[in-house]
Amino acid sequence: MHPAPSIILFTVLSGLGFGLMIFLGLGMPSPTGLSAFIWFAIAYILAVGGIISSTFHLGNPKNILKSFSQWRTSWLSREGCLAVATLLVMGVYGAALVFLNMRIPLLGYVGSALALATVYGTSMIYAQLKTVPRWNHPTTSVMFIAYAVSGGALLAGQVSLAVWFLPAAALLQLFIFLTADGRFGAAGSTIASATQLGNIGSVRQFEPPHTGSNYLMKEMIHVVGRKHALKLQIISVVLLFTPVLLLLLPFSHALALVAVLAHVAGVIVARWLFFAQAEHVVGLYYDKR
């Protein structure tokens, strides 16, 4: 799949922002006044910035309000509804902390649960697609949630939790890198099942339907970036483990910043590979993966 920067930024930044909200809602930390304003501003800039970035991917964004209407069947619609609900609930919870110096625990817990559900909603946009076997797997949702929770704990300064969550997320990513290559084959779609010509003999493309490229090929058949996949996988896992080591050192703000940057860079590389390595079954019609 084409690794569109707008979608990579959307999933990484909004995942971090909603991850931070999970902890703010739980009262970890529980700031008030100006300090609360700064904490909530960071969470909102990440979450809303990510969502705004995702709209750059749209061909016709003027209809965006209609995308809240089909929550009965559409994970994209559900994700949008959950994101708005989270932002509203956390907005009230945060405003009470900033202006009234008052923590309303129940509102915070609801906001946390909604933030977690939003990240799950984001993950299901990808995990629901049978057409992309690499994504159509429970580890996709676990991975999105693991990044939100570990990145959120890191941003929220919950070091005692982060030292467990961060390596767990890194190990999960490693597990995905090691196992996801086989999913396309295991799903069973081949050029023979795509064309239903396999009972005659072995099928190969003789001539494509057009000499140039098209939307489908640009969007779903991305082969360029896979060349360095192994190197990028190693870089990603190293970056994902780096914050764990930094957190074990005596605390300083500079080290914490490096830890956050290393984590975000690791997630971005992993997310880029999440798209670039994903193969869509429509490629079979073009005899390409």
């Binding site: 799949m1 991917h57 749209l58 061909g59 016709n60 964004p61 003027k62 209809n63 965006i64 209609k66 995308s67 994209l76 946009i125 629901q128 697609l129 049978k130 057409t131 992309v132 779609s189 795509a194 098209n214 939307y215 489908l216 969007e219 779903m220 869509h280 079954v281 429509v282 019609y285």
Partner: peptide
């Protein structure tokens, strides 16, 4: 008139029947 051009339906189609 309702389409936002997100392209998710084209991703969901195994046959490449939809083009943005």
């Amino acid at each position: 008139a309702d389409c936002i051009g997100c392209g998710l339906c084209a991703w969901a189609c195994p046959y490449g029947a939809r083009e943005l």
